[in-house]
Amino acid sequence: MAEKDNSFVKFMNNLYYAVDAPVTYIREKFIVPNQKKYPWYHQQYRRVPTIDECYTDDIVCYTEANCQFMRDKSVEDEILFILRSRYEHCVFYHGDDRHLCDDLMKAYFDASAAWFAKYGDMGIALNVKNAYMKQKHRMIWERRHGPVGSGMRSQPTEA
Rank of each mutant, 00 (worst) to 15 (best):
K37W: 10
T24I: 00
H42P: 01
I31K: 04
V32S: 02
Q44R: 10
N14L: 04
K4S: 15
F30L: 10
T24Q: 03
N13P: 09
V32G: 03
Q44I: 11
R27I: 01
I26V: 09
W40M: 15
P22W: 00
I26K: 06
E3N: 00
W40K: 15
Y17K: 05
M12T: 15
P39D: 11
N14R: 03
N6K: 00
Y41L: 12
F8S: 10
D5E: 11
R27T: 08
T24M: 06
Y45Q: 13
V48I: 14
I26L: 02
N34K: 03
R46I: 03
R46N: 02
V32F: 04
F30H: 11
Y16S: 13
M12F: 14
V48R: 12
A21Q: 02
W40T: 15
K10C: 02
Y16W: 09
V32W: 02
Q44Y: 03
T24N: 07
V32R: 13
Y25R: 06
K4W: 11
V48N: 08
D20E: 04
N34E: 02
F30G: 02
S7Q: 14
R46D: 14
V23T: 05
V9I: 10
V23E: 07
Q44D: 00
Y45D: 13
E3T: 06
A21I: 04
K36M: 00
M12Q: 14
P33H: 03
Y16D: 11
Y41T: 10
N13Y: 03
D5I: 09
Q44K: 11
Y25L: 09
D20L: 08
V48T: 10
M1Y: 07
P39L: 15
L15I: 05
S7H: 11
M1K: 08
V9C: 01
V19D: 05
E3H: 06
F11S: 13
K36Q: 08
V19S: 10
Y16G: 11
L15D: 03
K37H: 08
I31S: 07
F30W: 10
K37M: 14
E28Q: 04
K10R: 05
Y25P: 01
K29A: 06
K10N: 12
P22Y: 09
N13I: 09
K4D: 11
S7P: 06
F8L: 14
R27A: 05
Y38S: 10
K29S: 11
F11V: 15
P33W: 00
D5A: 12
R27F: 02
V9L: 12
P33S: 04
R47E: 10
Q43T: 04
Q43A: 09
Y25D: 07
H42A: 12
N6F: 06
F11T: 14
R27C: 05
A21M: 05
D20K: 10
F11P: 13
E3Q: 00
V48E: 08
F11I: 14
T24C: 00
H42M: 07
K29P: 08
S7E: 09
S7Y: 07
Y16A: 11
A2E: 09
F11E: 14
K36H: 09
H42V: 07
V9E: 03
